[in-house]
Design a protein around this nucleic acid. Sequence first.
DNA 1: ACCGCGGCCTGGCGGC
DNA 2: TGCCGCCAGGCCGCGG
Length: 282
Amino acid sequence: MPELPEVESVRRGLEPYVVGRSFAAVEVHHPRANRGQEAPLSALLVGRKIAAVARRGKFMWLEFADEDHSDPARDVLFIHLGMSGQVRIGEVDSPHVRIAAVLDDATRLSFVDQRTFGYWRLGPWLTMAHIAPDPLETDFDLTAAGRRLRAKRTAVKVALLDQTVLSGVGNIYADEALWAAQISPLKKASALRQRDAVAVISAAGDVMREALTVGGTSFDALYVNVNGESGYFDRSLHAYGRGGQPCDRCGEEIVKTVLGGRGTHYCPSCQRRGEGRLPAAN
DNA sequence: ACCGCGGCCTGGCGGC
DNA sequence: TGCCGCCAGGCCGCGG
């Protein structure tokens, strides 16, 4: 479940089941699920006590009780959901169960991942040092993120997806943030005024916070929380997936195009902020 | 140093 | 019905 609100929904769901528990058994059913790991995951994890479930952007990780949490070199268990990963409580009847784990209180965790872009990997926390803060962090610096965005010479849509600028934003929330801030996805990030860069990042935070309150966005059973339930933010989408439909703000037709290889949806009429002519407000 | 593109996978859908 | 190409919410590494 790809973007920040979906990952955070999983993190919150996982927390009460795993904190204070230890791994009793871990079985890897698909080699890609722990690629990059030499030793078997079970040898690395069994007996280790989980102290916390943390997240930055779309990266989630388990902190262990026997590690120094202020040490950037400490080992953590990264759980990345990739494009189609799920972490479920209990056993799951699916051909895509890639990892099955049991905790010391007999709680079962199933890592289900159709496309195998996700993984569990024990490694040093600093492996993800390049991931920028996400807009839901309490000390997130909007001004600095705005400057990083404007340092990019790509289209602003592409820059929003760059996890070293800010993290957590994926293809859905990038389109939604640009729609909310009334900025064209095609506009060069470096051509944005600072206040518009800040506005679109701020909008990304707002949209993701709102999505989180309804459990994230899911169009199908691929994107579910730890109990297999779908979120329903798809009902609140204004741009993503709405190509050919009328803009909720101005009625013009939403256009679908491709930017940076990703489907991109926007209103060509009212997403023109910072282009010299203000959109007609309805 | 940066940016753009291709690759990694599976499965569902629309078109022929 | 069947096959084929295209598309999908992410990320990394390569080459220019």
